[in-house]
Amino acid sequence: MRLINRRPSRPVAVLLAALPFVLIVIAYMIGSDLRLAANPQDKLLPAPSTIWDTAVRLFTEPDKRSGRILLWADTGASLRRLALGVGIAAAISLSLGVLIGLLPYARRLLSGFVAVISMVPPLALLPILFIVFGLGEVSKVVLIVIGITPFLTRDLSQRVLDIPHEEIVKAQTLGASTLVIALRVVLPQILPRLISAIRLALGSAWLFLIAAEAVAADVGLGYRIFLVRRYLAMDVILTYVLWITFLAFVIDWALKRLSGKAFPWMGAGL
């Protein structure tokens, strides 16, 4: 039988999916063991048990000075920035995408501009943002917005253009105005695309968030990681990294569920 036609059975499939994770954990454990055997004070690869103890402490024990559990405070602050940034970017790109995709005048005016803007590396703008908006929340949110809006806009305007011309003509023969076409034909069909585009952009959004927090913040997941780096607190960093990964995964999964539930007409199209 050809390799392309061989399919794993269910248990084998589960095993295969778990394998890379298991391998990486084993590799880490071996590395950690070797280093700790050579030097019990080694901080670079803390033992899994140490990480676990640290994680429990981080999730449950309040900070002595502020009385807050720092990890939750960091998580709350970071998720708020992320939600604001992504939400604002989604609103802007949805409006721009519909305008560019639907109106030839807006297309002429904006599509070249957006294409050029999307080439600007957002992180290079970070100093400017700090100067203009200060070191507070605004600059971090704005970085996320600037970072992902061009991508979202280009993707969405293309999706609008992909709507069959027949549908737009049909709507016109039913007497629909431009506004009605935008609101009742284009927008509902674009929303599931928006969600899949956001899922793609979330990776960048996290990147911009953590970068901004690393440079200037007093709370946030990225801030904490870069703060404890000074003490080489690998157990804390690793806990935070795993936590961020988990959060990103849950958000992605939730968005996927949402688009499946909210847009039943898409069928298996997502």
């Binding site: 069959p164 027949e166 549908e167 049909k170 069909q189 007409w265």
Partner: peptide, 12 residues
């Protein structure tokens, strides 16, 4: 009024 070979109704 018009009916095309395809895409004549609103899928959503």
């Amino acid at each position: 009024g018009v009916v095309f070979q395809r895409y004549s109704v609103f899928p959503h």
